[in-house]
């Protein structure tokens, strides 16, 4: 790559070239990140909603804990997951280390607190609005959660996207538990780190632009779906 090539032009060239390796890496990035976000939502939405809507002892502590865990350093999570999945760790026999599954596990641990903490805030605000109505109608606790989550769905979409942003941009954890193995666990961020270490700064930056484009496409797609469903609801 010529040093005087514009970064954007280089990125466009990469995309248009249809390079098989690049497609594979982008595909794995999406697979790992989307799986982690979906799993995080499966855990974090009900968890955050419960902490936001229910009254129980230790609720305040849990809320603070969830907020604090949003700042989990990816490298620390990567190390912890490595020690768990290592052949000499408790889950070694599963042989998950250096697989995409290990990367999904690490990212799920990173993203779940974000989803849970932001969901808690959104649900708590709604709960204070609807609390009396629920009480007068005698709505059970579980029914209340699903009603609140459904009502907050538009805001929660942004919560999921925040989780996606964290996961897709993360390099420290997936590098350790995935190992950045070519054609197996190499994703966009680890490729960027590798090319940077090879001194191929132009290529690394161009890949960064591609990653940004990927995040743009995902966000635009989600917002488009939201727009369509909102129109359908009002039709």
């Amino acid at each position: 790559m010529q040093p005087d090539t514009g970064i954007i032009a280089a990125a466009m060239g990469l995309i248009l070239s249809g390079n098989a390796d690049l497609i594979e890496i982008v595909g794995l990035s999406l697979r790992v990140t989307l799986s982690a976000v979906i799993l995080s939502c499966a855990i974090g939405l009900p968890l955050g909603a419960a902490v936001g809507a229910w009254r129980f002892p230790g609720r305040g502590v849990l809320a603070v804990l969830l907020n604090a865990l949003m700042g989990l350093p990816p490298v620390v999570v990567g190390l912890a997951v490595y020690l768990m999945l290592s052949a000499s760790g408790p889950f070694g026999p599963l042989r998950l280390l250096y697989t995409p599954t290990a990367m999904i596990i690490a990212q799920t641990i990173l993203v779940t607190p974000i989803v849970a903490a932001l969901t808690r805030q959104a649900i708590e605000d709604l709960q204070s609005e609807y609390g009396e109505q629920f009480a007068s109608l005698g709505v059970g606790p579980v029914r209340r959660l699903s009603a609140l989550l459904w009502d907050a769905r538009v805001g929660l979409l942004t919560v999921a996207l925040a989780g996606f942003g964290r996961a897709v941009a993360e390099v420290g954890a997936v590098m350790i538990v995935g190992g950045n193995i070519n054609h197996v666990t190499r994703v966009m961020t680890t490729t960027i780190a590798l090319e940077t270490s090879k001194g191929n700064l132009q290529l690394a930056l161009a890949l960064g632009v591609v990653l940004l484009g990927l995040a743009l496409v995902v966000n635009a797609a989600v917002m488009a779906v939201r727009g369509v469903s909102a129109r359908a609801a009002h039709a």
Binding site: S35, I38, C41, L45, P100, I104
Partner: peptide
């Protein structure tokens, strides 16, 4: 409706996890 889409999401995640790496 929410619960149905929720179940679908969970199923998709499990599918992604279960898909063999190689």
């Amino acid at each position: 409706m929410f619960r149905r889409s929720f179940a679908g999401l969970a199923a998709a995640a499990l599918f992604a996890l279960a898909a063999p790496a190689q």
